[in-house]
């Protein structure tokens, strides 16, 4: 549609004009729908009467006379009319003059009115111009104020930014200080911590040394104890063997021999032999028999038994 309007505006104009004309015809031609007024046909009724001729004659004469009288009257009337017409003409002239005067008056009046309107319009235009100027002035003032305000705002903004920047700097400095303080504190703590550590290490060393010493002492003590225990068992073993020894006949007193005994855990005798004899065979044999007889020999349990796996015992019953 738009391209048609652009390309061919005449068509649009013609179409619109056609419709407008149609609407106008409709507006004016309201009469189409008005029901036509029906005219009532006038009924002319004829009235008739029968009359005789004499009376008609008389009537005719009378009518003639009346006619003459009427004629006369008409002449008079005509004269009167003529006079009247002359008067009317005079009147008409007077009226015309008056009319002319009135028209002139009116025209003058209209001209004055037109002038007044023109004056008024000029006045209004001047007023409008004044208002426009006023408005322009106000606008420019407003603009100036706005600019001033903008400038102030910009300044305020700048000041605020400056302040912010300074604050930021101050904050940075404060942070720096804080950071340094924190560092110093940390360093101090570190030092303290190191000192504490050193102390703790020293203490630890001292404690270890003491423990070592104690262990040594305890070991010595234990060794002593073990030795005592071993001695006790040796005595017990010797007693067992002596109790089970039967003196052979003819053997003098004061003989001794060294026996080597191998033992199993629990004291069972695995093997017994004479390492160094007394010089008397019977004695030596009796000593060996006594060992076998005394089986099982009393031995300590646990770690101490190790030294009893193979032992040498000096057998001297009379001592």
């Amino acid at each position: 549609m738009r391209d048609v309007i652009k390309r061919n505006p005449t068509a649009v104009v013609i179409a619109v004009a056609m419709h407008l004309v149609l609407i106008a015809i409709m507006l004016v031609g309201v009469d189409w729908l008005k029901s036509p007024e029906r005219k009532r046909p006038g009924a002319d009724v004829v009235q008739a009467r029968v009359i005789d001729p004499e009376r008609v004659q008389a009537e005719v004469r009378k009518l003639q006379q009346a006619e003459e009288a009427k004629q006369r009257e008409a002449d008079a009337e005509a004269q009167r009319l003529e006079r009247l017409k002359a008067e009317q003409a005079a009147e008409q002239r007077r009226l015309d003059d008056l009319q002319k005067q009135r028209v002139a008056e009116e025209r003058r009046h209209k001209e004055a009115e037109t002038r007044r309107i023109a004056e008024e319009r000029r006045h209004k235009e001047a007023e409008t111009r004044r208002i426009a100027e006023e408005k322009k002035r106000r606008e420019s003032e407003a603009r100036k104020v706005a600019e001033e305000k903008q400038r102030q705002e910009a300044e305020a903004r700048k000041a605020a930014e400056e302040k912010k920047r300074e604050e930021a700097e101050a904050r940075k400095v404060a942070e720096e200080k804080q950071r340094k303080a924190a560092e110093a504190k940390r360093a101090a703590e570190e030092k303290k911590r190191k000192a504490a550590e050193a102390k703790r290490a020293a203490e630890e060393r001292a404690r270890q040394a003491r423990a070592a010493r104690e262990a040594e002492m305890r070991a010595a003590l234990e060794a002593e104890e073990d030795a005592r225990e071993v001695d006790r068992y040796r005595g017990l073993i010797r007693q067992y063997i002596e109790r089970n020894w039967v003196r052979p006949a003819g053997i003098g007193e004061g003989l001794s021999c060294t026996l080597s005994v191998r033992l199993a855990p629990g004291g069972a005798v695995l093997d017994a032999s004479v390492v160094r004899g007394s010089g008397n065979g019977a004695f030596d044999r009796s000593a060996r028999a006594a060992v076998y007889k005394a089986d099982p020999l009393p031995v300590p349990s646990g770690g101490l038994f190790e030294s009893f796996r193979g032992i040498e015992i000096i057998f001297a019953p009379d001592r």
């Binding site: 549609m1 048609v4 309007i5 390309r7 061919n8 005449t10 068509a11 649009v12 013609i14 179409a15 619109v16 056609m18 419709h19």
Partner: peptide
């Protein structure tokens, strides 16, 4: 109607 008459004149041309 207005538009179609516009078209009619336009097409005729």
């Amino acid at each position: 109607s207005v538009i179609s008459w516009t078209m009619i004149f336009d097409r005729a041309r």
